[in-house]
Simulated scan of single mutants.
Amino acid sequence: MLRLDERADPLPGVGEVRVRVRAAGVQPFDVGVRSGRMAGFVPVTFPQTIGQEYAGVIDLLGPGVTSLAVGDEVLGSTMLAAQAQHVVVPAGNVVAKPPELSFAQAAAFVAAAQTASGALLELGVTEGDTLLVHAAAGSVGTIAVQLGVLAGATVIGTASPANHDYLRSIGAIPVAYGDGLVERVRAAAPGGVTVALDAIGGEAIEASTHLVADRQRIGTIVDDRLAAEHGIRVVRAGRSPTRLAEVIALAAAGKIILPVRPYAFADVVEAHRAVESGHGRGKVVIVVEE
């Protein structure tokens, strides 16, 4: 069950800041925690707050914080706390929000930027590669496609036909998933695929093993079981404010886009349902009014 509740406003401790949240991303991890699928992996104490990614305005400084000021617009990661009006975070973990991005746009990038950039770094994507991105129209896939293109790779993205024009617009060669995927990818990449990033799991992993010769250049962010079974990599680079700032700078310069699907804070249940459905391009974001 997911519901709005009144809690005491959190107070920052030494080296921390409090952020008045203006937008909070919703990701599959949040859905997994809420539904109980993350039991044993993430400690939960009821009533449990939720949410990993935020953008907002600093409204209170903890003792010892001198590098930031009340009124600074920031974004960043937290653990099970972002879908709220206030969040307390370490001062060293926040990233400045560029004025070119709205709060909703900034929040949308937080998790996907770190996941996609870290995965491509671990897989060593570089100029001359042919990169296959599964679930390329989702938030992680959208950023991975664009980072791959910026790195000089040829990028093939799997998605439903309804998202093929979208994938072309961000630089990918679109391929429909489902039966016959391997043959369609081979037709789209006659020179072969050198690296693959999976953001959906299941059959996409097996397909990748038929397309990429080096299994250490096949990575998944979602399916640990099949990764072990097929001898591929789980690519979950840790959170990095530095990597996040790098991708945010690209977004502010208009070099990377990420469509936002906004929901009002009062509609948080519907926002979770949208993510849980597994459909739709871009990122679901909860907008918390001033």
Rank of each mutant, 00 (worst) to 15 (best):
R7L: 14
V14Y: 10
E16M: 08
V17F: 04
R18W: 05
R18H: 08
V19Q: 03
A23C: 12
G25C: 05
G25P: 05
Q27W: 07
D30E: 13
V33M: 09
V33K: 04
R34E: 14
R34G: 08
G36N: 12
R37Y: 11
M38K: 10
V42G: 14
V44P: 06
P47R: 15
Q48R: 08
T49E: 09
I50W: 00
I50D: 10
D59C: 08
L60A: 15
P63R: 14
G64V: 04
V65T: 02
V65I: 00
T66R: 14
E73C: 13
E73A: 15
L75D: 07
L75K: 06
G76I: 00
T78F: 01
M79P: 07
Q83G: 12
V89A: 08
A91C: 14
G92A: 11
V94P: 01
V95T: 02
A96R: 13
A104I: 00
A104Q: 07
Q105Y: 03
A106R: 02
A106L: 04
V110A: 03
V110N: 01
A111R: 10
A116Q: 03
A116T: 01
G118F: 00
G124H: 08
V125D: 02
T126E: 15
G128W: 06
D129L: 13
D129Y: 05
S139T: 00
V140C: 05
V145W: 07
V145Q: 15
L147M: 10
L147S: 04
A153V: 00
T154W: 14
V155K: 13
P161H: 11
H164M: 11
L167K: 02
L167V: 00
R168N: 10
S169F: 05
S169L: 10
G171T: 02
P174N: 11
Y177S: 12
Y177I: 04
G178A: 08
V185C: 09
R186P: 15
A189R: 07
G191A: 06
A196G: 11
A196R: 02
I200E: 06
I200N: 06
E203V: 05
E203K: 10
E206A: 11
T209E: 13
H210C: 08
H210W: 12
V212Y: 01
A213D: 13
A213E: 13
G219Q: 05
G219N: 07
I221K: 02
V222A: 06
V222H: 01
V222M: 03
A227M: 05
A228P: 11
G231Q: 10
R233A: 14
R236E: 13
R239S: 12
L244G: 03
E246F: 00
I248T: 04
L250N: 05
A251R: 00
A252S: 14
G254R: 14
G254K: 13
G254M: 13
L258V: 03
R261H: 11
D267A: 12
V269F: 07
A271P: 03
A271F: 02
A274F: 04
E276T: 04
G280R: 04
R281W: 05
V284K: 06
I286W: 04
V287R: 15
V288H: 06
